[in-house]
């Protein structure tokens, strides 16, 4: 019995293996096409005229394509301003989050101090808090801090990223303590060790967290909707959602706006691709 199966493997093994790979590959490609279809639709929709919108499922013939949706986007609304607002709020938030989360993660990973376990538990629990619970009291608080209808009102309450602290903590657990001690022997300050020793080690995590934090802030909707009141301060999600109502039937412009809004995230992803995957999983795999 055993011999027979061995033989089959010896003679037809390669073929079967190859066939399996082909079947798997075809399966993957068809699933991938399903996943990509909405994105292709989005791109196609942004270059279709209003009358072609429902005529072609995806792209119209090349001579019927138009960039007028993008033009109308910038003429009908202050799209450039919204883009700038989003960039400012998101990049500021991410920069500060990076600093705070990595410092916090470093403190939790490379030191032993009183209250550490309690703090970890508190952070874990706080990750489960549904944000809307705090919507009303936060509004009240920001009013007293005079931060309603300001970008600071978006940035400051969003500075805490508990997931980030966890990611950095997990990654920094891998830092050999010898390195840290060596740094101290060399006379480097604690902050110097964090900056020159710890951060370079967790570079993939920095990349991954940057993307995660960027996406979180870039896509945030509920809170900006509550805080911002002046049009000139709107971020892209709020502005585009407004477009849904405003130009109810101008789907082309809406899709063009959505496409442009997603583009920065995609660019950042390509830039960070290398770090992203290893960094994202570092915490989870080891955790």
């Amino acid at each position: 019995m055993k011999k027979k199966s061995m033989m089959r493997t010896a003679s037809g093994g390669f073929d079967r293996q190859a066939w399996t790979t082909v079947v798997i590959w075809l399966t993957l490609v068809s699933v991938a096409l399903i996943f990509l279809a909405p994105l292709v639709y989005l791109v196609a929709a942004s270059v279709k005229t209003m009358e072609d919108f429902h005529r072609y499922s995806f792209f119209p013939p090349i001579d019927r394509m138009t960039l007028s949706n993008f033009a109308s986007l910038f003429s009908q609304m202050d799209f450039g301003r919204f883009l700038l607002n989003s960039l400012f709020v998101t990049c500021t938030t991410v920069t500060l989050q990076l600093l705070m989360a990595s410092l916090g993660g470093y403190a939790l990973a490379c030191y032993r101090f009183r209250g550490q376990q309690g703090l970890m538990l508190l952070l874990l629990v706080s990750m489960m808090i549904p944000a809307p619970v705090m919507l009303a009291p936060l509004y009240e608080l920001l009013f007293h801090l005079r931060l309603i209808d300001t970008h600071a009102g978006l940035i400051v309450p969003g500075l805490v990223n508990v997931l980030g602290v966890f990611l950095f903590r997990q990654a920094m657990l891998n830092i050999p303590m010898d390195l840290v001690h060596a740094g101290r022997v060399d006379g480097a300050g604690e902050f110097g060790i964090y900056w020159h020793v710890a951060l370079p080690v967790v570079r993939p995590t920095i990349g991954a967290f940057t993307l995660i934090a960027f996406m979180g802030s870039w896509n945030s909707f509920l809170w900006p909707q509550v805080v911002l009141q002046s049009n000139e301060l709107f971020t892209l999600p709020i502005a585009l959602n407004q477009l849904v109502g405003l130009y109810n039937d101008d789907y082309g412009a809406l899709m063009a706006g959505t496409l442009l809004a997603v583009l920065p995230v995609v660019l950042l992803f390509f830039l960070l691709q290398r770090e992203f995957i290893s960094g994202l999983t570092e915490g989870a795999v080891k955790g």
Binding site: P38, L39, M215, N219, T258, V262, V265, V266
Partner: peptide, 13 residues
């Protein structure tokens, strides 16, 4: 890639 779109923009789409 769909993940890069984010919840809000995906909902609009």
């Amino acid at each position: 890639s769909p993940h890069l779109m984010g919840l809000v923009f995906a909902s609009i789409l």
